[in-house]
Simulated assay, not measured.
Amino acid sequence: MRITEMEFVEGFIRVTEDGFKKGWHERNGGNFSYRIKPEDVTAIRSELKPSSHFTPIGVSVPNLGGEYFLVTGSGKFMRNVSLCPEDNIAIVYIDEKGENYSIVWGLEKGGTPTSEFPTHLMNHSIKKELTKGKYRVIYHSHPVNIIALTFVLPLEDKVFTRALWEMMTECPVIFPDGVGVVPWMVPGGRDIAIATGKLMKKYDVAIWAHHGIFCAGEDFDNTFGLMDTVEKSAEICVKVLAMGGKRQTIPVQGFRDLAKDFNIDLAEEFLD
């Protein structure tokens, strides 16, 4: 089976298409990565190039040593991924030390993995450890409404979490741990990777002020669905603010009742 016919590649491409249609990926905005399952690596190994030229990652992720990732390319447009995957995405091998990478498939017309690759790998490393390997997806996009909120709400985890929880009853169920907020930082470097990684130890959602959002998840559907839910909640919040603000909302006891009925643990720090 050709690499582009593999189920995980088709699922990856579907997310890039859906995200573009949502308006989350202007020009070459956003990036996406997936930690490939061992059985899928085995199935495509004959199509992978030997790992010869290695490039420093910029961060050390030893628990990802020997892993393979499917990732979008730097400067590539999400809208073009489905048209020609070979030119716009890549499969990357991480060396045994977790310090260097080698492109073993894709980006046939040249290029490198997304400039946010260090942030992706640091988050993959954290989530792999915390979930015992269950999480495999990191997704970054530029949703309009969540970015808009970073200009008017205090850049605090509690403020954003509570605001988003209150907009739709399902939100506390879908992201019960809340969301974290990174103040504005220059993207693509070690500092923002470290700042995002600290939040990913606690949350599955990290909002980058005036920039976008990072989500982590077990698979494509759950990760895309998480981002879609956060952005929809942000859209409602923007409209509520535009209409003059809240007149009523979900009471604190309502959140506690919701948590009990849905058997979820809501962070009490966001309820006081």
Results as ranks from 00 to 15, higher is better:
Glu269Thr: 07
Leu226Gly: 07
Gly225Asn: 04
Val205Met: 03
Val205Glu: 06
Gln248Ser: 15
Asp191Gln: 14
Leu199Arg: 02
Trp208Asp: 05
Ala195Lys: 13
Ser233Cys: 12
Phe220Thr: 09
Thr229Tyr: 06
Cys215Asn: 08
Lys239Tyr: 14
Asp221Glu: 15
Trp208Glu: 00
Val205Asn: 05
Thr196Asn: 11
Ile194Ala: 05
Val238Ser: 05
Phe255Pro: 11
Ala216Ile: 09
Ile207Val: 13
Asn263His: 10
Leu199Ala: 07
Lys202Gln: 07
Met200Lys: 03
Tyr203Ile: 07
Val252Ile: 13
Thr196Gly: 00
Cys215Val: 15
Phe270Ala: 10
Ala195Tyr: 03
Ile264Met: 04
Leu226Ser: 08
Asp191Glu: 15
Gly197Leu: 11
Ala242Glu: 15
His211Ala: 03
Ala216Cys: 14
Asp261Tyr: 12
Asp265Phe: 06
Ala193Asn: 05
Glu218Asn: 11
Leu271His: 07
Ile236Trp: 05
Ala193Gly: 04
Arg247Asn: 09
Lys201Ser: 04
Lys201Phe: 06
Trp208Cys: 04
Gly225Lys: 06
Gly225Tyr: 06
Gly225Trp: 08
Phe270Pro: 02
Arg256Glu: 15
Gly217Glu: 04
Ala234Gly: 10
Gly217Phe: 00
Asp204Ile: 03
Asp228His: 11
Lys260Val: 14
Lys260Gly: 10
Ala206Phe: 03
Pro251His: 13
Thr223Glu: 01
Glu269Cys: 06
Tyr203Leu: 09
Trp208Val: 01
Ser233Gln: 05
Ala216Ser: 15
Glu231Gln: 09
Cys237Glu: 03
Gln248Met: 14
Glu235Ile: 07
Phe214Tyr: 08
Met243Lys: 02
Cys215Pro: 03
Asp272Ile: 07
Val240Trp: 03
Val205Pro: 05
Ile213Arg: 03
Leu258Thr: 01
Gly244Arg: 13
Leu241Gln: 12
Val205Phe: 01
Asp204His: 13
Met200Cys: 12
Leu226Arg: 08
Ala242Val: 07
Met227Thr: 04
Asn222Lys: 10
Val230Gln: 02
Ala206Gln: 05
Phe255Arg: 06
Arg256Met: 08
His211Phe: 06
Phe262Arg: 15
Glu235Lys: 15
Val252Asn: 11
Ala259Lys: 01
Ala216Glu: 10
Ala206Trp: 00
Phe262Trp: 15
Gly244Trp: 10
Ile194Tyr: 02
Ala234Pro: 05
Ile207Gln: 02
Glu269Met: 04
